[in-house]
Design a protein around this nucleic acid. Structure first.
Length: 653
DNA sequence: CTTAGTAATATTTTT
DNA sequence: TATTACTAAG
């Protein structure tokens, strides 16, 4: 333990000071690429060398990917004992305790639902409470209200009054819908993402027995990406600290999750809130060459906010970032994949390249081009495997087998069968509610769906295989194939996904765990099929890319309309957040940063708050890079401006 | 009530 | 592009 310190793993002075900090609580302000992960890993190593019990260290990350990376790095540095460190996301950590002490938290068996299910449930609630009313907020907006209010620890009414323009009466009606939604959620034993955090925080703060138990479990709480924690998450940290010590690492210039309730205050007010806390800074960038940082620094300097960031490259100088402009996004996509192929031909592994995109939608041409050229890739944040219609069809059976109160699952499963529509299904579901014994459910199904004997058979088969997920899927596919074949005319293509599902299920102990894993950590089709492949290009949304890096980074769609994104225009805070998104994207690159964009911006119009918004570079205020000084970039000329029909003028003139 | 066919709808970011 | 929403006919 700890024997490697300073020999193999070199830290600079700032990092070492942070890793070995011996006071109380600490906030580490760490700029992009300043070695946040290394410092956290080194801190764990330091604690272990001081004989801190690994089981008493808690490491909270923002995503599962980050948690995985941390575990790997800790293992490499400090060995087997780090397996005992609790490392995971907030959601993961909280859920673990809800499961361990359900009685103390007051929750029984539950299924985690994703945003899709939330939306559907909200649609039902909205339908019964307000009926048809085009003026009334759509279900998607209602889900956002509900989630945002809870993540910022406000009541619904308080949030609506403060952040929306709705009148008193509308607020009343919205509250009514959300109440109905909550009731439906409980009826189905559903838990949405926010319930996990909220119930944990509530138990932690309102149940003294529970708080004492939880507080006594950890001595050190390490938090990654502190700038993206929200008030609800802060409540959790605040409840767990003392005597446990907080070690929070973050960078306000990389805060890009305000839409999820993330609050800078967790960083800016840290020392006010936590008595005696110390602030340490990491300012030397180990990731990128100075030229990449020059452009990034310039971007932040344009902001009216003072980020007080001026990253300095420890690696010195390299190539200037490039900016390429194309007239069509198909050309842009093809250029990138051709460049990739050429580099690979030249001996560079695929894995050294990352393509960053503002939106998953914006990457569709690149994805198509990668497929065309047979370049292996994984798309992090791309279309989710579990969201395609045929997969949902299949999973509906597994869901109801796992949780018989799952009404959305029943509705989907039942209506797949001939002669069963919404009404018939609703009647059957009504009969099923409140019954938990599988054999009784089976007999009701058999009784009510005589025309489709396989409906009940398939259910019975899956229930028997609850702890053999792979076999359960095989059985489900077997029984449902005739149905799905008829429903989809491109069944051949779709059935491949179900094979993929079988393979994924192998690694899981129960159906419940299988469903939960991929609900909390959605997986895209390309990720699922390339799971074991190491050498692949990474296509990734900027939001998912926070915390990662690659030697060569392509930044897709660097053009007006994307930075800031049109949907954020009009709200100053949102626009400013978009600048940070671009900053995060740029600072991922280690050696080369290649920005591409199209001049003909998205055809013509983009819907924006029910208006049409033309943004084709008419207003330079709307594009962060419109005033970017040319000397910061490499020599690529914008293609359209390249004058090929002009006589050359001597430089001596 | 169900179903087949057509129209519309929405594509920011995520645990 | 793909899925969901709606409408008219069975």
């Amino acid at each position: 333990m700890g024997q490697n310190e300073t020999e193999t793993y070199q830290l600079n002075d700032e990092q070492r000071k942070a890793a070995q900090f011996d006071g109380g609580h600490a906030l580490i302000l760490a700029g992009a690429g300043t070695g946040k992960t290394s410092t956290i890993v080194a801190r764990v190593d330091h604690l272990l060398s001081r004989d801190v019990d690994a089981r008493r260290i808690l490491l909270l990350t923002f995503t599962r990917r980050a948690a995985r990376e941390m575990r790997l790095r800790m293992m490499q540095r400090s060995g087997e004992s780090t397996k005992l460190v609790s490392a995971g996301t907030f959601h993961n950590f909280c859920l673990q305790f809800l499961r361990r002490w359900p009685d103390l938290f007051g929750c029984g068996a539950l299924s985690i639902i994703d945003r899709d299910d939330q939306l559907q449930l909200m649609k039902l609630a909205r339908g019964t409470i307000v009926g048809k009313d085009a003026q009334f907020p759509k279900s998607a907006e209602l889900v956002n209200y509900y989630s945002y209010a809870r993540n910022t620890n406000r009541t619904i009414a308080e949030y609506l009054k403060q952040f929306t323009e709705h009148d008193e009466e509308t607020i009343q009606r919205i509250t009514g819908v959300l109440q109905d939604y909550t009731k439906r959620k409980l009826d189905c034993r559903y838990f949405d993402y926010d319930d996990i955090l909220q119930l944990f925080a509530k138990g932690l703060h309102q149940n003294n027995v529970l708080r004492e138990k939880l507080k006594r479990r950890f001595d050190h709480i390490l938090v990654d990406e502190m700038q993206d924690t929200n008030p609800l998450q802060w409540l959790i940290l605040d409840g767990l600290r003392d005597p446990a010590k907080l070690f929070c690492v973050g960078d306000d210039a990389q805060s890009i999750y305000a839409f999820r309730g993330a609050d800078f205050k967790n960083v800016h007010s840290f020392t006010d809130r936590v008595e005696g806390a110390q602030v340490l800074r990491l300012e030397e960038n180990f990731r990128s060459y100075q030229e990449i940082l020059d452009v990034s620094n310039w971007l932040l300097k344009q902001s009216p906010l003072d980020y007080n960031k001026n990253l300095h490259a420890a690696r010195g100088r390299g190539d200037k970032p490039r900016m390429l402009e194309f007239s069509e996004d198909l050309e842009e996509a093809d250029w990138i994949t051709e460049d990739l192929a050429a580099r690979h031909e030249g001996g560079t592994p695929w894995a050294e390249h990352m393509i960053l995109t503002r939106t998953a939608f914006g990457a569709r041409h690149v994805e198509a081009s990668l497929v065309m050229k047979d370049i292996p890739y994984r798309f992090v944040g791309g279309t989710q495997l579990l969201h395609s219609a045929h997969v949902k069809d299949l999973l509906s059976l597994l869901r109801v087998a796992d949780n018989s109160a799952d009404q959305l699952g029943w509705m989907r499963y039942l209506t797949l069968w001939p002669r069963i529509g919404e009404k018939t299904a609703a009647t059957i579901i009504g009969k099923l509610m409140g019954i938990s014994r599988a054999d009784m459910i089976e007999s009701i199904l058999t009784e009510r769906t005589k025309a489709n004997p396989r409906l009940a058979e398939a259910f019975a088969a899956c229930v028997k295989l609850l702890d053999r997920p792979q076999q359960a899927i095989t059985a489900a596919v077997d029984k449902m194939t005739p149905l799905l074949e008829k429903k989809y005319d491109d069944w051949d293509r779709r059935s491949k996904d179900l094979k993929l599902l079988e393979r994924l299920a192998e690694k899981h102990a129960t159906i419940g765990e299988f469903l939960e894993t991929y609900t909390l950590d959605p997986i895209s089709e390309s990720e699922a099929s390339n799971e074991d492949d190491q050498d692949v290009v990474t296509l990734i949304t900027v939001h998912s890319a926070k915390g990662t890096e690659a030697p060569v980074c392509y930044l897709l769609g660097v053009q007006p309309g994307n930075y800031p994104h049109v949907r954020s225009i009009g709200d100053d805070d949102q626009e400013e957040e978009e600048r940070r998104v671009l900053y995060v994207a740029m600072t991922r690159a280690k050696n080369e940063l290649i920005m591409t964009g199209t001049s003909r911006y998205q055809g013509a119009f983009v819907p924006y708050h029910n208006r049409y918004f033309a943004a084709a570079g008419t207003n330079s205020q709307l594009y962060f890079l419109s005033d970017l000084p040319g000397h910061l970039l490499g020599d690529d000329l914008p293609f359209d401006d390249d004058p090929f029909d002009e006589p050359i003028r001597s430089y001596r003139d």
